[in-house]
Design a protein around this nucleic acid. Structure first.
Lengths: 166, 166
DNA sequence: ACCCACTTTCAGTCTTTAGTGAAAGCTATG
DNA sequence: CATAGCTTTCACTAAAGACTGAAAGTGGGT
């Protein structure tokens, strides 16, 4: 496979994957584009390469910066802003875990906390509290696990983790 | 909080959470409804309680069965099909992990495998292969980790996991 | 102080995805 | 083997979410 084709397939596929991941196709595509670009890119560069509007680029680029998957890179003599992607994959993984935990796990923890307070002594109420309690248990465990994953160096984490499972 | 209010909030919130989890609001709501129901429910029951159409119930119910989050329960003397939710949360977690891994991780592994084959000896090609290789590394690790999580008893997994991180 | 080169915003439009409901498909029962 | 009772399908509609582009905002340079 030629490099150019590889890059195109990567950008295309990363975008598609993005949706199953809860980020928009465009955000994922811009991310992919930056990841495989050897130089910083401006909004105009991205608009042209992905054939999308200025507003769209602006919004999604700021989202990428927000997730810390990209950052601004000022180029001397240029007034435009340029962007580069974070290329240290352990950091990329970390950023994604943080963002997804915030969106997918934390609201659940809050919900379950509220729901432990249902009253009632009959079997039905007990059953309900049991469901909530159990879910809370697993959510808390996932929460701690992900926090740990975020804190430690990813390489250390994974290698230790895998040794453990052998 | 009263039991009835608790159940309603749970169903409502589980639905909302569902979307951030990549399942439709309705599928998640039906799941929640079954989880807090003490008896098996028929399509008609679900239609009435959630105020949704028969087709919608049918589609999403079959999805829940597909994910192994619910199963049919035949009631003697009834021609209708009834459904109950899996209430063992370690199994619920497992099912969800399996489904999400299939949707979110496996297509990525396939993509990255393909992309390792780009040709070229210049720096740009090397850079591209490096990005792909690194992503592959983390994806493979996540893959193994999730496989392990799926195989082992969840309680064992989490407790060992947490001890390790202390 | 004004202009120019850019960035940001947002109302409106387009696209994508979910939900409806009626018709077609099954199947147990008399 | 006809029918009633239920399940499944699917063309259409509704709702949600993403994208556009033009207008407003910003700030460095002269």
């Amino acid at each position: 496979m030629q490099l150019q084709e590889g890059k195109e397939r990567f950008i295309e596929a990363w975008g598609t994957l993005g949706s199953s991941w809860g980020v928009t196709r465009t955000m994922a595509q811009i991310h992919a584009l930056l990841l495989v670009s050897t130089t910083p890119l401006s909004s105009d560069d991205v608009m042209e390469k992905l054939q999308i509007s200025r507003g769209n680029v602006n919004t999604n680029m700021r989202m990428l910066v927000d997730w810390t998957l990209a950052h601004k890179k000022l180029i001397p003599g240029e007034r435009k802003e340029f962007f580069v992607a974070e290329k240290d994959m352990s950091k990329v993984v970390k950023s994604i875990v943080i963002a997804r935990k915030k969106r997918e796990l934390e609201p659940m923890l809050r919900l379950l906390d509220d729901l432990t307070e249902v009253e009632g002594k009959d079997e039905e109420a007990e059953g309900f509290r049991h469901v909530v309690k159990d879910l809370k248990l697993y959510s808390d465990k996932a929460d701690s696990a992900l926090d740990a994953l975020i804190k430690v160096d990813s390489n250390w984490f994974f290698s230790t983790f895998l040794k453990m499972l052998k």
